[in-house]
Design a protein around this nucleic acid. Structure first.
Ligand code: ZN
Ligand code: ZN
Ligand code: ZN
Ligand code: ZN
Lengths: 147, 147
DNA sequence: ATAAACCTTTGAGTTAAGTCACAGGTCAAG
DNA sequence: CTTGACCTGTGACTTAACTCAAAGGTTTAT
């Protein structure tokens, strides 16, 4: 069992953030000590890591709460409910993945096209990489000739 | 050229959000009409879409501003600066991609394991799918036998 | 030519997600 | 048996990212 400070430190967040998550229905510690300390289990830690990962990829706490509610309410929800929510989130995730892949392509293209030298980056732009096809970026970039 | 309301409607955001982005150095309209109206070009629209996509995958406005500054300052930045920033963001993106892929795997696994019926979703949990290996989830899930 | 529907600026209010401050209880080490 | 590092609760404050309000100018539609 982790006490609040231990779990917070392990996950590099503020103690108050844990209390905040508890108050907002995201993560309730599995137990309390006699003196009232919050006691978090390994599973609690995994839930927290799930929350932090989800946050990192752009889910709001409300969305995360919704995802976690599957867990909490499993006895009172039908498989139909679960599947509906999961499939909706899956769509979200797949859309985000598509966007991110696009970003990755653009940034990679840009990074590869860029010489990394000390000259003016006249042709180095994210938007050029985003807007145009690969061919364009490679073509126009990087003459740096002595004028 | 789009006027503020047109661009806002086209991109499904609030007019005020565009003014806000302008004030915060994210998107300045290419031109103004004689009467002072903001006039946005096609390129401005693409920048806006870039901003909205970036937001959607979890970049903060500060980070987006940084990405866009490559564009704005290109004449005053060396390729070295550009490459450094781009490579840093690329790392970010790749990390987000890894997380999202993990989410996708878990959600897909859960969705596939779930019958979608009206029975209690006792075994349907995100966390089970996240924590365990595929085998476990498939195994334990979905007996729904008449008790 | 006048109302409706835009636009302008400045500045205040809201929501999400923390973060901090206060007043006091608990516990391990010296 | 006290000091310092924890913990408790309640509630106020902060930051990011909008969102709205007020007061007035402009354009379009009838
Ligand atoms: Zn370059
Ligand atoms: Zn170069
Ligand atoms: Zn199911
Ligand atoms: Zn089922």
């Amino acid at each position: 069992m982790y006490r609040i400070g231990e779990l917070a430190k392990a996950c590099k967040i503020n103690n108050d953030t844990l209390r905040f998550y508890e108050k907002n229905g995201l993560l309730r510690p599995s137990d309390r000590s006699d003196s009232g300390y919050r006691l978090y289990s390994e599973k609690d830690k995994e839930i927290l890591q799930f929350i932090l990962r989800a946050k990192g990829v752009g889910f709001s706490l409300a969305e995360i709460r919704e995802l976690l509610s599957i867990e909490v309410d499993k006895a009172n929800n039908a498989c139909a409910d679960v599947k509906e929510l999961v499939d909706a989130k899956l769509l979200d995730v797949e859309q985000k993945l598509a966007e991110l892949t696009r970003f990755q392509t653009s940034l990679t293209r840009l990074s590869e096209a860029c010489c990394g030298g000390e000259e003016s980056a006249e042709h180095c732009t994210i938007l050029a990489a985003l807007e145009s096809d690969t061919s364009q970026v490679r073509h126009e970039h990087h003459h740096h000739e002595a004028s």
